[in-house]
């Protein structure tokens, strides 16, 4: 198994790391038993994500995918952030090892959960499904 240089860069120097006080939306996904939890915070102004931060418990790729996901949604309208796919996160990181792809799904899920939280807090409709994370084969989750 090998990580790309991009993954290692985001692991070594994670972007947007830390808690956000007074976040407009917070999304937390994963569980400690499986070994990864991602928490993404967003600040929203006039429908645009003006800032994003994250805290992650997990492996190198979990940290790198959260870092990249926050980079990809910063400055984007909420509607566009909702379209962020795990594929886009993987591509932006120049690929992930096969057994780490679930980390990118977790990142996509965390972004949507944060947006959902923002919508709920502001009485906005949220029609997107938060996709189920693929944990087929994980005995703790099935």
């Amino acid at each position: 198994m090998q990580y790309s240089e991009k993954v290692m860069d985001h692991f070594r120097n994670p972007r947007n790391i830390g808690k956000m006080d007074n976040a407009d939306g917070v999304g937390e996904v994963g569980n400690a038993r499986c070994g990864d939890i991602m928490k993404i915070y967003i600040k929203v102004d006039a429908g645009v994500i003006t800032d994003a931060k994250f805290n992650t418990f997990g492996c190198g790729s979990a940290i790198a995918t959260s870092s990249m996901a926050t980079e990809l949604i910063k400055g984007k309208p909420v509607s566009e952030a909702l379209k962020l796919s795990n594929r886009a996160v993987v591509e932006a990181l120049d690929g992930l090892p096969e057994n780490k792809l679930h980390c990118s799904v977790l990142a996509e899920q965390a972004v949507r959960a944060a947006v959902k939280d923002y919508c709920n807090k502001n009485g906005l409709p949220f029609s997107f499904d938060v996709p189920a994370e693929d944990r087929s084969g994980c005995p703790n989750c099935s």
């Binding site: 692991f11 070994g35 190198g60 940290i63 084969g137 005995p139």
Partner: peptide, 26 residues
């Protein structure tokens, strides 16, 4: 695994029994 990777950044070779290093989710 993230601890192992970070120690590698400090030049230290170690090992971990985390799921992420075992190649499974356990």
């Amino acid at each position: 695994e993230s601890l192992l990777l970070l120690l590698n950044e400090y030049g230290i070779a170690s090992s971990s029994g985390s799921a992420c290093t075992s190649g499974s989710l356990e």
